[in-house]
Amino acid sequence: MSYVEIRNLSKRFGDTPVFESIDLDVEKGSICVLVGPSGCGKTTLLRAVAGLAAPDQGTITIDGKDVTRLEAKQRGIGMVFQHYALFPNMSVEQNLAFGLEQMKLPATIIAKKVSRMVDLMGLGPRAKARPATLSGGQKQRVALARALVLEPKLLLLDEPLSALDAQIRKRLRDELKKLQHEMGFTAIFVTHDQEEALLLGDRIGVMQSGRFAQVGGPSEIYGHPATMAVAKFIGDFNILDPVTIEQVFNRKCCLNWAVHPQAIEIFRPIPKPKLSEGIYQADVQITGVHVLGCVLRYMVQAKGVALKIDALNRPNMTPMKKGDAARISLSAADICELQN
């Protein structure tokens, strides 16, 4: 039995279903990342788990306790919102203390917990400041601290980093990962960013119009996307339909392929290629070469089909040039066949 169990959960607004019969498991001390296109129901799912929106059907169990019918405040859930949702009339410390005060803890214990959390999050110099005077990154740190100081059973984060600029976003993402290792909290984290998802998620659920297209670990999602939606989310795949596959590799199959750019080998054409079982080869024309740091990205055409190929950019190597003829090779094991 998992720490958080969502079973058969459905929610509709009027006649339009948002999600239907969703199942999700989150293990204790892990981060489950939810990704998916806008409007697919991620926020609604979080709100149902938090008790802010009542599901029409199904159960939510946290730590062995069915919380489906419990009031929001009795579920022991902390939430971090995209736009911080700090209390503007209170200082950083007061924001952190607010939830503890509702637990009717003695003032000395509240003060101790707050100051420990303020230190942990590096908010010391701003402890007495009002939210309006903080930067976006600081605000979100306060929001995170405000949720964590209550030691919630489950932390829900709805695109907490998307309002921040790229640099702060990366920093806060790494801090969050570190914090999670240290404190071991359990979280469900919603994002649109694949890098964020792969980095933070112990498990990743890719949602597609109200259901999970795939749930799995980051290497599974990255290495073996199950559907087109998942492959599209991970991005950067070569996606080939059966007609194209036959055209380029002379193979018959009935599913789409997703192939990582780095799974394809590219080399100078050799007179007599030896063909072996499970290796697909094709002649190509190089149409572009881009240096992306440690990676060389070749853009090639194979019988009129555009493919992208990544090769390691070794020092002292002479890369092939635009206009060169080349040969590519692909191992069957590196092909992800996409359902539907």
């Binding site: 008790g51 802010l52 929001a72 405040k73 859930i77 919102f81 209390f87 503007p88 209170m90 939830g99």
Partner: peptide, 26 residues
């Protein structure tokens, strides 16, 4: 904003307490 209200609600504040401590001061 609704999320300020919901944040307070999740932290255990009743509607009345929310208005007294947060809504009215704002």
């Amino acid at each position: 904003t609704p999320d300020i209200e919901e944040a307070a609600k999740l932290m255990g504040a009743s509607r009345w307490l929310f208005w007294r401590r947060i809504g009215l001061p704002i």
